[in-house]
């Protein structure tokens, strides 16, 4: 494992911790898209099915279990425990518009036509667009709390760091996987507009507010 990959994983873990702490400490999930969180839970469950069949390393197993468990916990907090604070009026993105095309794409473009491999490919495609309901929610309300912005920045950085990891692995190990690279580029590009606002506003102590 190289430093980009490790930083990417840590950034991903940090994003999840920030989100969980925000919801737990404020007893509220206002400003967070439950739709995106459902999509992330689907992403981790369908991607990490190999937990049952393949042992890679203790690190790998630990992280996979953490990602599955925390994604389910976040959905539970949003839809059960702190349901009253959930911003469902603004969280109106239709997730079937993401689920169906990514499933069809996974059936068409994959490394191997087996159930586990297709679900893995589906999870890669779905992850690349899973943040759209969240970005849609931010654009609808026109603003995001700073803690939500920190969460989005850490989450966006994670796949960006993975891109550097893939460049490194391509030159170092001659390893590459076009499916994850293309999906990773799409995923990172979707955050670019947000990254710009984060750097120009949130880091200068201002609230993330979209221009009217």
């Amino acid at each position: 494992m190289n430093v980009f990959r490790l930083l990417g994983d840590l950034s991903h873990l940090l994003a999840i911790i920030v989100l969980l702490l925000k919801i737990w400490k404020t007893r509220s999930c206002a400003g967070i898209s439950g739709k995106s969180q459902i999509l992330f839970a689907i992403v981790y469950i369908t991607r990490y099915l190999d937990l049952i069949t393949t042992y890679i390393s203790a690190y790998n197993m630990f992280m996979k279990i953490i990602f599955i468990a925390t994604s389910i916990a976040i959905v539970y907090l949003m839809y059960v425990k702190f349901k009253a604070t959930y911003d469902h009026n603004h969280d109106t993105f239709r997730i079937e518009f993401l689920l169906l095309p990514t499933l069809v794409l996974a059936l068409l473009i994959n490394h191997e036509f087996t159930i586990v491999e297709i679900l893995w490919t589906f999870s890669i495609y779905l992850e690349s667009v899973a943040i759209l309901p969240q970005l849609f929610l931010v654009s609808k309300t026109g603003e995001a709390e700073s803690i939500t912005s920190h969460y989005l920045f850490a989450l966006g950085s994670y796949r960006g760091l993975y891109l550097l990891n893939w460049i490194y692995r391509y030159y170092g190990e001659n390893y590459y996987d076009l499916i994850v690279i293309v999906a990773g580029i799409v995923q990172t590009v979707l955050y670019c507009d947000f990254f710009y606002l984060y750097i120009t506003k949130v880091l200068k102590g201002k609230k993330l507010q979209l221009p009217a």
């Binding site: 994983d9 991903h12 890679i56 790998n60 996979k64 390893y175």
Partner: peptide
């Protein structure tokens, strides 16, 4: 072609 049986990345 990547090894589809062993996925070490997350």
């Amino acid at each position: 072609k990547p090894d589809v049986q062993s996925k070490d990345e997350l």
